[in-house]
């Protein structure tokens, strides 16, 4: 059983994001980068499956050298080896170009049973890459997975849908995107961290994947970021003082006429 886990390095969720006017990326100075929390669920699930059924777990990311720390985190948790896609050619990749590169790397790796990734990356929150990869590979996929049982040639999963859960049986190979609740990711232990240093990490370029100049990076992208801006600052709240009989009608009126929420 071979599981490929797609991961991304993202700013720590406690980061206070800043945007410099006119720039199309956030200000990355002093930001702590971590493994995307939803990818932790994906990695944990893959490792649990390996522990139960044997086989191997390969993590794959498109990212700069810096992203190796996120890779090592997954390796320290118990993944076996890693692939990192890097090079000038990938600069400016959008979701489509990223998915294309990952799909190519997965095809090159071959022989997989399952692909797991987070339901979305918590930086750009687009929640597209996983499903795009599955489409490009021509395999079935399911998103927002909160339970996963690997059977013989298929997986039975539970996924979140509006107002309830859905249970599906999906033929392998397939791709699943992990939602919170799928499992409780382990912390990488110290011996795990030490071992991770020695695990195999291959770096592949667009050329290695057979991607043409117009298929990768900005040239291979369908979208481009025009502008980044901070959400408008929230106005200070209003405090109403007095007897409930007096203020409740006032508040109700404002909620109806000004805030238009009731």
């Amino acid at each position: 059983m071979k599981t490929i886990v797609l991961i991304k390095q993202v700013p720590d969720t406690e980061t206070k994001v800043k945007v410099n006017p006119g720039e199309t990326d956030i200000n990355r100075e002093g930001i702590n980068l971590v493994l995307n929390p939803y990818d932790e669920f994906a990695a944990e699930e893959a490792i649990k499956i390996k522990e139960a059924k044997g086989g191997e777990v390969v993590v794959c990311t498109l990212g700069e050298k810096k992203a190796e720390e996120a890779i090592r985190t997954a390796l320290a948790m118990g993944a076996d080896r890693a692939i990192r896609l890097d090079g000038e050619a990938f600069a400016g990749s959008d979701n489509y170009a990223t998915a294309k590169a990952l799909a190519k790397a997965i095809e090159k790796e071959g022989d997989y049973d399952l692909i797991l990734c987070g339901k979305q990356a918590v930086d750009d929150d687009s929640a597209q890459v996983g499903t795009l990869v599955a489409e490009m590979l021509g395999i079935p996929s399911a998103s927002l997975v909160i339970n996963c049982e690997v059977g013989d040639g298929s997986v039975t999963i539970t996924r979140e849908i509006e107002g309830g859960n859905q249970e599906l049986e999906i033929a392998m190979p397939c791709l699943l995107t992990a939602q919170k609740g799928l499992n409780e990711p382990r912390y990488p232990s110290l011996p795990g961290i030490m071992k991770a240093k020695r695990k195999k990490l291959d770096v592949l370029s667009a050329g290695d994947l057979g991607l043409g100049a117009d298929e990768a990076g900005a040239a291979g992208s369908k979208t481009a970021i025009k502008e980044l801006s901070m959400p408008p600052e929230r106005k200070a709240g209003q405090v109403f003082e007095g007897e409930p009989e007096e203020i409740v009608p006032k508040v109700a009126q404002l909620l109806r006429e000004e805030a238009k929420v009731i």
Binding site: E69, R72, A76, Y187, I193
Partner: peptide
């Protein structure tokens, strides 16, 4: 080092 940073983060 990367390893020290990982220990710290973990």
């Amino acid at each position: 080092t990367e390893e020290q940073h990982m220990v710290q983060l973990m």
